[in-house]
């Protein structure tokens, strides 16, 4: 299933709702372009809702890390929301749970930004 992305404003935070697979090729490219375009639009606070993302491969993981670094390098924050079990397990075994802030409640996530 191809990756789809839409974004919405929640106060200062841009929530990006993804659905589909973040894998080598179009999925990873769309994630990269989405975050890059929003950064160019002077947005700095991001909450990536991955509730409908059921599959990520190493390329997708790399793209998430790349997005995280790009946002941080512009003094922004990027956090994750609603991980599916497969994605959660993947972030655990790759130790990226120690890097990303992960939430299961959007309200709690939105109130966590500096």
């Amino acid at each position: 299933m191809a990756l789809h992305a839409t974004h919405r404003d929640a106060g200062r935070v841009t929530v990006v709702d993804f659905s589909g697979r973040i894998t080598l090729g179009e999925g990873s490219a769309l994630l990269r372009k989405t975050i890059r375009d929003l950064l160019e639009d002077d947005r700095r606070l991001f909450l990536l809702n991955l509730g409908d993302v059921d599959y990520i491969d190493s390329s997708g993981i790399g793209e998430l890390v790349s997005a995280f670094t790009a946002v941080r390098n512009r003094d922004g924050e990027m956090k994750l929301l609603n991980l599916t079990k497969k994605v959660r397990d993947l972030l655990q075994i790759t130790k990226l749970f120690t890097v990303f802030e992960v939430f299961s409640d959007e309200g709690a996530a939105l109130s966590s930004y500096r």
Binding site: E63, V65, S66, T69, L90, I93, T94, L96, T98, V99
Partner: peptide, 21 residues
């Protein structure tokens, strides 16, 4: 090793690790 502290923010290098796991 993709789990080494200095490699955690690497954008690549996790494929071998995942296959092994």
């Amino acid at each position: 090793d993709p789990l080494a502290e200095e490699n955690l923010l690497s954008t690549s290098g996790r494929g071998i690790f995942l296959m092994r796991a």
